[in-house]
């Protein structure tokens, strides 16, 4: 009964892999990079996260929101409470009504979530031509995850094979190769606090790292707890296997 089972399991494994949707074979296969957060012992790289935050603030946050990231959680990146409070105060959030019944804008604080840089989607569409999507979950909602963001940001290489309408850009990795987003990164865009050289590749890697954290902030806790749980279940499986062997040793089937 075992051999066919192997075939069945193989089939089942194939089944569980979601089919990849390729847009008529146009987008190139994604670039990949070895990330510190993959694998059983995967952890985020705090220096990369901090650089990524810097890139995100400079290059992305002017158009994109990060609505599921609360400023208080930036302390996970290794900042102190005061540093995060200072960072948050650069953003404005709506509050109120005040004593006069008026809504007002105030600097963001720790409990606030990262606001979108526009009031609503209609305004966003008017400003940008289309609504710049929220990036909180971008690495979980695209095939390739962090590699997708990493590739896309480096896909503006101008090898275009057809004419583009104004306001559109060529990108090797975007389905259909036509993207509405202008190239957001260029050499030396930011001055990294830790002195790392701000190449496009470096910035793309760091901001992808940061966006992976933004989408899955509990990854480290998850992988750490998982190790303990799996150690426990395998040890218990071993103990109960031994108990079972002893118990059944003298039973004639």
């Amino acid at each position: 009964m075992w051999k066919p089972l192997g075939a069945a399991l193989l089939g089942a494994t194939l089944l569980t892999h979601a089919p990849e949707v390729k847009a008529a074979g146009e987008a190139d296969p994604l670039m990949s990079r070895s990330w510190s957060f993959t694998g059983i012992f995967g952890r985020y790289d705090q220096a990369a996260l901090q650089r990524g935050l810097q890139v995100f603030e400079t290059a992305c946050a002017t158009c994109h929101g990060l609505e599921f990231v609360a400023f208080r959680t930036l302390m996970d990146l290794g900042y102190t409470e005061d540093e995060v409070r200072e960072f948050a105060s650069r953003f404005w959030v709506e509050d109120g009504p005040d004593a006069d019944g008026m809504m007002f804008e105030r600097p963001a604080d720790l409990p606030d979530r990262w606001p979108a840089p526009w009031a609503n989607e209609v305004e966003a569409a008017l400003i940008h031509g289309a609504v710049p999507i929220d990036l909180s979950l971008i690495t979980k909602s695209r095939y390739g995850g962090a590699n997708y963001v990493y590739s896309l940001l480096q896909g503006y290489d101008d090898e275009k094979t057809f004419e583009l309408d104004p306001g559109n850009y060529w990108n090797r990795f975007y389905p259909g190769n036509v993207i509405g987003m202008a190239p957001p990164l260029f050499e030396g865009l930011v001055d990294f606090a830790d002195g790392t050289e701000a190449t496009v590749q470096q910035m793309a890697a760091d901001v992808s790292h940061f966006l992976m954290w933004a989408a899955e902030p509990k990854l480290e806790e998850r992988k750490r707890l998982g190790l303990g749980v799996i150690l426990y279940t395998t040890a218990m499986a071993g103990i109960f296997y031994a108990m079972n062997r002893r118990l059944w040793a003298n039973i004639k089937k």
Partner: peptide, 19 residues
């Protein structure tokens, strides 16, 4: 030995359930 194994096994199961 069997008693010891049984004690470890069932106690471990209980601890796991509490965890």
């Amino acid at each position: 030995r069997r008693d010891f194994l049984n004690i470890v096994g069932w106690t471990g199961l209980g601890i796991g359930a509490v965890a």
